[in-house]
């Protein structure tokens, strides 16, 4: 594979064309450009839904995928600002620590799974288990989300502009889900609470960066009922379902 060298003051965005490269070569090229050559923006052409692109990069730079990406795109991201112009597979931005990932398309299941920080935006719909086990950060889905979205969420915020399938917020520990559309059903111990001024402010902050056309007042708030936090013999029906 050719060595990539980029001048410090580029004046242009280096391009990595995936057409003839293996996943290993693509990721090495991106790392070389960002981590070693100091590129502040890299464009990835023809990703062709390849899995595991741009994973575990720790840097502050822009990464633009011009096309669909496969599973775990920008997984374990730490500081990158990533844009995907296309759909993405499962687990986009999974376990992200910080940074920003925007998908201008639909996202597969487990979007933003277990992220601890940063923000993820999906302009279309997201599949099942969006925001599962989130430990912080922000997930905004302009469209609808699949079943068990927010399952075992621990912290952070999920904003859903569309509808949610079965089991929204099932077994959440903490965190907040805002939803503008219909909820097919709430999961175990997920409860609806009143929207207050702080919620409106949080929604404004979450929606402002994106052109969603959504208004904070449209949303409802879902949080944990906290009845599953500790074992209790007094609510056997709930525990029968939960355990």
């Amino acid at each position: 594979m050719a060595q990539l060298t980029v001048p410090s003051d580029l004046g242009f965005s280096p391009v990595v064309d995936c057409s003839e490269l293996t996943t290993r070569e693509i990721n090495l090229a991106v790392r070389e450009l960002i981590e070693k050559a100091g590129a502040t923006e890299v464009v990835i052409r023809n990703p062709a839904a390849r899995h595991n692109l741009g994973v575990a990069i720790k840097a502050e730079a822009e990464l633009r995928f011009e096309g669909p990406v496969g599973w775990y795109a920008a997984g374990m991201n730490c500081g990158l600002s990533v844009t995907v112009r296309g759909n993405c597979g499962w687990g986009v931005a999974e376990c992200m620590m910080s940074g920003r990932v925007a998908v201008y398309g639909h996202a597969g299941s487990s979007t933003a799974a277990s992220i601890r920080g940063g923000s993820v935006y999906v302009d279309g719909d997201a599949g099942a288990r969006a925001g599962i086990a989130m430990k912080g950060g922000l997930l905004v889905v302009r469209g609808s989300v699949g079943y068990m979205t927010g399952f075992m969420m621990q912290r952070g915020t999920i904003v859903v502009g569309g509808d949610a399938a079965d089991g929204l917020g099932d077994s959440m520990y903490e965190g907040t889900i805002y939803i503008a559309g219909e909820i097919e059903s709430l999961g175990a111990d997920a409860v609806e609470k009143d929207l207050n001024d702080d919620d409106v402010a949080a929604l404004c902050a979450a929606l402002t960066p994106w052109d969603t056309g959504l208004e904070p007042k449209q949303f409802r708030k879902i949080e944990s009922g906290r009845k599953l936090w500790n074992f209790s013999a007094h609510e056997p029906e709930m525990w029968k379902v939960a355990l």
Binding site: T23, N27, V55, G70, W71
Partner: peptide
Amino acid sequence: IKIEELREAT
């Protein structure tokens, strides 16, 4: 796929 991701990360 997950294993490949972990390998790419490391």
